[in-house]
């Protein structure tokens, strides 16, 4: 395989794997693991007649996903126990939200750290409550702490001293330095309670957040995985009457209308997600660059197209920080080495 396209195709159209040669299977498993999509793939292909060895490998990927899910739900439970005495109702984000809410995007999905959103004026209380419950700073030097507190959209990451799990406490969904400013109060206001004291974003905001995560936050690493979330969520939410109009409104409110259009075009291109052209807009030449970047992995799971990758790395910092700050940040980082 020359890039990760067959993985995207297998996810969107599982029947495509029935034509696979033995070497194709080996490459597909490797690429899926490199993109951390092996669990998702395993669930997508579960009902197909597959070679025994492949079926066993995918069964193992599902077992791993089930373990990840147990751990993620337990972290939610422990965060809830830590925060509820302070009267804080965390809004679960990303993988933990999908798993807790039983959304199809959570099926087989890798769940890393627990990400939660709390109101900005409750940030200090949340921090204190988590530290009481055994969390500690990962980065305790003054510059990193100051950097996070002044400019980022989250507290410096906290790690639990016994469980060694991480929690990211966000007060909004993009860094304060980013040129777009989502309306954090509106996100919280519109959030939905899914269990006593636990919340998730509403459907449209969940998509907007997934888009910020895909495009504005990070260098498109894990792009296929983040885009797969968007596909799974859209296919579910689209059946609710009025969903697309609401998505349009919420994206505009959060200053994410153009990135949303791009994400819709990309998920349509890679996963054949049905999207309304009115929101997606017209295909652009630049879309192809994003597609190339997201598929940039060879049959051995190695990253390819380094020039394209570097461009995206600079771009990701550029989006998040004004240039003078970027220089200052990179300088401080360089001195630290």
């Amino acid at each position: 395989m020359k890039d990760a396209r067959p993985l995207a195709t297998a996810l969107a159209d599982p029947i495509s794997v029935l034509e696979f040669t033995p070497d194709d299977w080996t490459s597909l498993l490797t690429i899926a693991r490199a993109e951390r999509l092996d669990g998702s793939l395993a669930y997508r292909l579960a009902d197909l007649p597959l070679p025994d060895v492949v079926a066993r490998a995918l069964e193992d990927a599902r077992a791993q996903a089930a373990f990840d899910r147990t751990q993620a739900l337990w972290e939610v439970e422990m965060a809830h126990r830590a925060l509820s005495p302070a009267g804080i109702e965390p809004i679960l984000l990303k993988g933990s939200a999908f798993a807790f809410a039983g959304l199809p995007a959570g099926l087989g999905r890798l769940i890393g750290d627990l990400d939660i959103l709390v109101p900005r004026d409750r940030l200090d209380d949340a921090e204190a409550a988590l530290i009481r419950a055994g969390f500690e700073w990962v980065k305790d030097n003054e510059y990193d702490q100051g950097y996070y507190r002044q400019w980022m959209h989250e507290l410096p990451p906290l790690i639990h001293r016994d469980r060694e799990t991480m929690i990211d406490v966000h007060h909004t969904i993009l860094p304060l330095t980013a040129r777009r400013t989502p309306d954090a109060a509106a996100l919280i206001e519109a959030s939905v309670e899914i269990a006593p004291g636990l919340r998730v974003l509403n459907a449209a905001d969940m998509i907007v957040h997934a888009v910020t995560h895909l495009l504005a936050d990070g260098d498109l690493a894990g792009g296929l995985r983040n885009l797969w979330d968007i596909d799974r969520l859209l296919r579910l939410f689209a059946s609710t009457p009025g969903f697309w109009d609401e998505l349009d409104e919420r994206a505009a409110l959060h200053e994410m209308r153009a990135p949303l259009g791009l994400a819709l075009r990309l998920t349509n291109r890679l996963y054949a997600t049905p999207v309304p052209p009115r929101l997606a807009g017209y295909d652009r030449m630049r879309d192809l660059l994003f597609v190339r970047r997201m598929l940039a992995r060879d049959g051995w799971g190695r990253p390819i197209r380094p020039v394209n990758r570097l461009g995206f790395y600079i771009r990701s910092h550029w989006i998040r920080m004004p240039p003078v700050m970027l220089a200052r940040h990179l300088w401080t980082k360089a001195k630290a080495k």
Binding site: P22, D52, V53, V54, R56
Partner: peptide
């Protein structure tokens, strides 16, 4: 050789 010719685990050095 792998069963059905399908290796399911990849190791590499580079």
């Amino acid at each position: 050789v792998p069963e059905d010719g399908i290796a399911t685990v990849t190791a590499r050095i580079g």
